[in-house]
Amino acid sequence: MSTLTAVEKQLHSEPDHRRYTIVLMAILSGLMIWSVSDLSVALDERGMIIARNILTGLVNPDLAFLFSLTNQGVFYLLMETIAIAFLGTILGAFLAVPLAFLSASNIVPKPISGLTRMLLIVIRTIPSLVYGLMLIRVTGPGPFAGVLTIGITSIGMLAKLYVDAIEDLDIKVLESMTSMGCTVFEKIRFGILPQLFSLFLSVMIYRFDMNMREASILGLVGAGGIGAPLIFAMQGYRWSQVGSILIGLVVLILIIETVSNKLRTKLVNG
């Protein structure tokens, strides 16, 4: 009985958050009503016909286009998208390594790490489509512009994750190498990289998984891959071809995600 009394006293001694909850719910409800009232939702008869045609095309894909082995078929376009994502990821991963070490405050002086972090923030701020549009003006439309775009956009995220891993290292190894008279390059090459290799590789595989989706979108601005045929098929109301492309993309991304998850699990646990 005394135990129940103590529990009840503890329960009643807890602060009452009901007023806070009511105010918070009222604010959220007001924001939702304001957001919904600002939307303009209008469905006319023509829009419903287009929606029905889209659904019909998606469930009845163009099988000849889907299984075509020519350079205009879905298989070739998907392979080109994979190549863009893979090469762009490799490029970004290599460029991110020196920037990551220049951003690590436990490796270089803080002024240098601060400036490099600002550079990485700028790189991450600009959307990939903007990079794609700029690089297309330099290199012309095609897969090469896509590879450069994927590489540049990958640098920001990869370098940030690399920095987190570098700064979490046990600095005793670095202190020992410093006492031995090792240079900064020797400390990175022999003291840090062997410890971080598997983690760096795991992060790179994760970024490749993301870059597959980025490469699909970049085709919309002419940077190669399957995005351009997708937007052309949509603009031409060829919904059966749109269905074929989306089926190919879904299957490919599922396969890549499954394989990459298994590889990352082995790298982290192994």
Rank of each mutant, 00 (worst) to 15 (best):
L87E: 08
N60H: 13
I50H: 14
L58Y: 05
V59F: 15
S68C: 00
L69H: 10
N53I: 09
T81F: 00
F67V: 10
T56R: 10
N53L: 12
I54D: 09
I84R: 01
R52E: 14
A64T: 13
Q72S: 15
P61I: 00
T56V: 11
S68F: 01
F75V: 15
I82M: 13
G73D: 08
D62N: 14
M48D: 11
G47A: 13
I82G: 02
G73W: 01
A64R: 13
L63D: 08
L66I: 06
L63M: 14
M79F: 09
G57Q: 10
M79R: 03
N53D: 15
L66N: 04
T70G: 07
G73I: 05
P61C: 04
L87A: 14
A51R: 04
L78N: 06
A83R: 13
D62K: 05
F65N: 00
T56Y: 12
V74K: 03
T81M: 02
G88W: 04
T89R: 04
T81A: 02
L87V: 11
F67K: 03
N60W: 09
T70R: 09
M79E: 07
L55A: 15
F65Q: 04
I84H: 03
F86K: 05
Q72I: 06
L55K: 05
A83Y: 11
A83H: 05
F67M: 12
T56D: 14
I84C: 01
M79I: 11
N60S: 14
L77E: 03
V74H: 04
T81V: 04
A83K: 12
G88V: 07
G57M: 08
F65T: 01
L63V: 11
F65W: 02
L78E: 05
G47Y: 11
F67P: 09
V74L: 09
D62C: 01
I82K: 06
M48Y: 10
N71A: 09
N53Q: 15
F75G: 02
T56A: 14
I54H: 02
E80P: 00
L55Q: 06
T70S: 15
E80G: 07
T56M: 11
I84Q: 02
L77W: 03
T89A: 07
M79L: 15
G73C: 02
N53G: 11
G47P: 08
N53T: 10
L55D: 10
A83V: 11
T70P: 01
I84V: 12
I49G: 10
E80R: 04
I54M: 12
L69Q: 12
A51I: 12
T70M: 02
L66T: 04
L63N: 06
L66K: 00
G73Y: 02
M48K: 14
A64W: 06
G57W: 11
D62F: 00
